[in-house]
Nucleic acid binder design. Structure first.
Length: 668
DNA sequence: GTAGGGTTAG
């Protein structure tokens, strides 16, 4: 057979066309002929080459068939194929056809080939709204907002979809303020917003936490009868929940006649946003009772809630369900799994979820780094990071945050400094306050207190209570009372409600026997109406979570736990345990102090778990505050005496106690 | 063409 180009230019084209007239069809016909149907079928099932070879002649007689071919090219994700198609179209002399040119432009936009799209656009004799919108969306898809804006501004006329594209594009790039400006401009120019506009605008309001603007959009939606639209309704609910108005969000969802999976997910995410992981689990269960099938986004939210709650049993059940639905291959679900297992104390399972995911992205890589950092495996974090670099995986601010965090928790000061420099110089990433906080932690805890303080004083970001608290903690560890005092005062200047800093400040004064200062701190605590945050621990036994509050006598098992602990502590003392009175406030007598220590929530939880789980099984406890020095020593003894592995997750990391020692190497 | 999600300092 002649090459196509030859056949085209050859004079016998017409003849060959006529020869095949039996199978040819007319473009004006409304009834699709059998070959057309067959051709479309081949295209949409991805058999492009076959479609082209078999229906060459039909294509010549009806160039619109090219459109089907072009559209079928998009999901094939093959740029070479697209280019071949383009040259065929040029050869066929159809490239000036407005309809085909638009399709081609769209094709190049899909592949991010904006130069090609621009070239086609430039050759168009008359640019209609449709062509402009296609190019506009191409720029938005490529995250090139400036390019999109230029096209938008130079458009001869616009329609509602043009405005919608701009609003959506800006919302998706988190430039919500500008998105809303487009909306008001659109309104001024007399365009009528549709459901698409309203949905995007609500997304913008959610991003800005702009409840007032969100309410206005809501009343517009009501007036225009858009509320029954599923997308509008879920956007509305999301907006309310993101703005902290959980009740209004729930009301919107309640009013939906049919709760679609997205509505459930919005509700679930809303519970998470408003700090209620228990609520997340409740809604997830209700969703399943209602017969709704969870999707990968459901799993992501629910698994994150499990990692907040540190309820391994529940997490495993959700994991099983996700596996059943084939959702674990998605990078998002894998990231949540990595984080959940790590935060529930099972690092091996994190690693398994990580390895099993085939399409790893930055977030998943950052999750596995953070997971190892959380367990004090600094060397492994560095090894994984190097692997990441070798493989040329994208690196972002959060990757570095995980890295720096790992270094500070493992005492790898030099490595941490090296990574911080690498981040700024090689990757040109701008450190955020969080990165500086990691550096202060890294420097301070490894003993370079002055460098740490200097970091705060010289950084471009405005210090918050957290960074000063980090310095405060480091100066307490290294017993630099002058610096601790300075840091505590800075914390309280930024956040006068910070109870932990009052307690630390009062302890500093007490250890220097400055009783007058102690009572002054106590007085300002009273004046500010600050209450010490009570220590709370949780332990999961047979899928039930038990909560223990420090000194809580109202606990139903208080009496038994008390007897058990007394015996245990007597045995510990025989082996050399001495209660560390320094971990208690200084204005009580020793007996009272010891009673206080014995009833720290983690000791209660561990005692309860020892009483209620089979010998030799590991115990996993979660605590809201950091483990105190005394408990840390005590748990080491308990792990030896009872021959149990005790895994404690405190507010900042994991401690694996085994045979009388802890994985953190007493550095925490 | 529009909606919901993941990693992250203390």
């Amino acid at each position: 057979m002649l090459p196509l180009s030859r056949r085209l230019t050859s004079a016998n084209f017409k003849a060959s066309h006529l020869l095949s007239s039996k199978t040819s069809f007319s473009s004006s016909s409304h009834v699709l002929s059998r070959p057309t149907v067959e051709f479309i079928g081949l295209c949409s099932s991805g058999h492009l080459r076959e479609a082209f070879e078999r229906f060459k002649l039909e294509i010549w007689s009806d160039p619109n068939l090219f459109s089907h071919l072009i559209q079928a090219c998009i999901p094939k994700n093959s740029l070479p194929l697209a280019r071949q198609l383009h040259s065929l179209i040029v050869i066929a002399g159809c490239s000036a056809d407005k309809f085909i040119a638009n399709h081609l432009m769209n094709l190049y936009c899909e592949y991010g080939e904006l130069d090609q799209a621009e070239a086609l656009f430039g050759r168009m004799p008359r640019r209609n709204v449709m062509s402009c919108n296609i190019l506009l969306k191409g720029y938005l898809k490529a995250d090139n907002l400036e390019g999109a804006r230029k096209v938008f501004e130079e458009m001869p006329d616009r329609n509602v979809p043009s405005w919608n594209a701009m609003i959506t594009g800006y919302v998706q790039s988190k430039r919500n303020g500008e998105a809303l400006s487009f909306f008001s401009e659109m309104h001024k120019e007399g365009f009528l917003p549709d459901v698409f506009t309203v949905s995007s605008v609500l997304g913008g309001c959610a991003g800005l936490r702009a409840l007032y603007a969100g309410r206005q959009a809501h009343s517009y939606a009501v007036k225009s009868a858009f509320e029954p639209n599923m997308v509008v309704a879920s956007s509305l609910a999301h907006m309310y929940m993101k703005c902290g108005s959980l009740g209004e969000g729930e009301a919107v969802i309640r009013s939906m006649p049919v709760k679609h999976v997205v509505a459930w997910n919005t509700l679930i995410a809303g519970k998470a946003l408003n700090g209620s992981p228990e609520g997340v689990m409740d809604q997830y269960n209700l969703m399943k009772i209602a017969g709704q099938v969870p999707d990968k986004i459901t799993f992501v939210s629910v698994l994150s809630a499990c990692s907040d709650l540190a309820t391994l049993g529940q997490g495993q059940q959700v994991h099983a369900e996700a596996m059943k639905r084939g959702a674990t291959s998605a990078a998002g679900v894998a990231s949540s799994l990595v984080s959940m297992y790590s935060r529930c104390g099972c690092l091996e399972e994190s690693m398994k979820a990580f390895s099993e995911c085939k399409e790893k992205d930055v977030v998943l890589w950052s999750s596995i780094l953070a997971a190892h950092g959380f367990h004090g495996k600094g060397e492994k974090v560095i090894e994984l990071f190097e692997e990441m670099q070798e493989k040329g995986i994208e690196v972002n601010e959060i990757t570095f945050l995980s890295l720096l965090y790992a270094c500070s928790h493992c005492g790898l000061k030099d490595k941490g400094v090296e990574f911080f420099t690498m981040m700024v110089e090689r990757y040109e990433l701008k450190p955020r306050l969080e990165h500086y906080t990691c550096m202060v932690d890294l420097l301070g805890r490894s003993g370079s207190l002055h460098e740490a303080e200097e970091t705060i004083r010289s950084m471009p970001a405005k210090p918050d209570a957290v960074i000063w608290k980090t310095l405060l903690f480091a100066s307490m560890v290294h017993k630099n009372t002058e610096m601790a005092k300075r840091a505590a005062e800075e914390v309280l200047r930024v956040d006068p409600q910070d109870s932990a800093s009052y307690v630390l400040l009062s302890n500093i004064h007490a250890s220097a026997k400055r009783w007058k200062d102690v009572s002054e701190v106590r007085k300002s605590m009273r004046d500010q109406n600050v209450k010490k945050e009570p220590g709370i621990s949780w332990v999961e036994i047979k899928n039930r979570v038990y909560q223990f509050i420090m000194l809580d006598k109202s606990h139903p098992h208080y009496a038994e736990i008390n007897i058990y602990l007394k015996e245990l502590i007597a045995e510990m003392k025989l082996r050399g345990y001495i209660p560390d009175m320094g971990s208690v406030l200084h204005d009580m007598d020793d007996e009272e102090k010891e009673h206080n220590l014995v009833h720290h929530s983690e000791k209660l939880a561990i005692a309860f778990a020892l009483m209620n789980t089979p010998a030799g099984s590991p115990i996993r406890v979660m605590k809201n505050l950091r483990v105190c020095r005394d408990c840390h020593v005590a748990i080491k003894y308990i792990s030896e005496i009872k021959a149990r592995q005790i895994i404690v997750r405190d507010s900042s990391r994991f401690h694996h106690f085994k045979n009388g020692s802890c994985s953190c190497g007493d550095y925490w």
